[in-house]
Design a protein around this nucleic acid. Structure first.
Lengths: 170, 170
DNA sequence: TTTAACCTAACAAACGTTCAGTCGGTATAG
DNA sequence: CTATACCGACTGAACGTTTGTTAGGTTAAA
């Protein structure tokens, strides 16, 4: 709280004038950070291109958002790691649900006879992992500098998923 | 430290007799937790079955380990989220490297003309996500009780990956 | 005059850490 | 065999700092 007060050039007591306690302030901050990012994905869904291109666009946006703002990504990660069931439900309903549903619709369009829920989760899981574990993966053999580029990762994930979907569909 | 001392029925000072400071104790605990899990995967690699079956076995083991010991999983997650580059390298070299290399070899066997590093990362990323975000995913529409079963998740991931690999290879 | 916004200064609790000392065992010297 | 010195394991009590939080007072605008 003291560090925060210094950062916003206020006294600690002034912060307590605006927020009941530290937890409420933290929750508000999380809410704000999440809502701020949502508009990035909006233009992907609104664009009029094929379902395959939309998938690629979503994956690319996901990677971009997480890469450009690592603090945000760490905040999100921490929230999900630490949250109790009630807070988790709040997060799910209030923050992620809309994006997840849109992604599920897209998955259903791409592979109607498959499990949309599992597929949507796979998309996010793949994208998240590369960003999250990038510092770790760099220490393994076979790592190439091009893995730092969002485009390369997005292309790999999209190709892998699309290939998998088409084969299973056939 | 006081909580820990109470848990092991010792005084705080007794702990400081065995460890120089809190950080050293924490690191030792992490090392111990990691080394303990390694033997689970050994029998997967040693088994004499097809590469496809080995992939499925590895994914299944990964999910089992993470599900059966959520504290361990959270510890690992936290380490990777919080670690600085030097600690990250220590973790990579001392803990994960061997498993990752074995997985890369398997990926190279399954799809020789593809990027083994990216594929290995994809396997782990998919498996990790389902476990990590299970509490969140439960709040989304389309969730089914069977997603709680490790076998269902392992089968889905394996199928998705194998299908993707074969198509791209063709 | 009321009210929101803000301050300084302090509170109690929790934190990582250390200090001086106790205890049982074991090796060594007389 | 006994006295002594030393050892590692362990303790209670405290150290200084940081933590979240609040009481009480000041200021400027409505």
């Amino acid at each position: 709280m003291r560090q925060l007060a210094q950062a916003v050039e206020m006294s600690v007591a002034a912060i307590y004038h605006h927020f009941p306690d530290k937890n409420a302030l933290y929750l508000e901050a999380v809410r704000f950070a999440f809502s701020y990012k949502e508009q990035v994905f909006a233009q992907v869904w609104e664009s009029d291109c094929t379902a395959e291109e939309k998938l690629h666009g979503f994956i690319r946006s996901l990677i971009d958002v997480m890469l450009e703002d690592r603090d945000f990504h760490r905040l999100m990660q921490r929230e999900i790691l630490e949250a109790d069931p009630e807070r988790m439900e709040l997060l799910a309903q209030g923050v992620f649900k809309e994006q997840f549903c849109l992604l599920m619709d897209l998955a259903a369009e791409l592979a109607p006879e498959q499990d949309a829920h599992l597929l949507a989760a796979s998309v996010i899981g793949l994208a998240k992992y590369y960003i999250e574990y990038q510092p770790l993966l760099k220490n393994f053999p076979g790592w190439k500098p091009e893995y730092d580029e969002p485009g390369v990762i997005a292309a790999h994930i999209t190709e892998l998923l699309l290939a998998g979907l088409k084969t299973k569909a056939a």
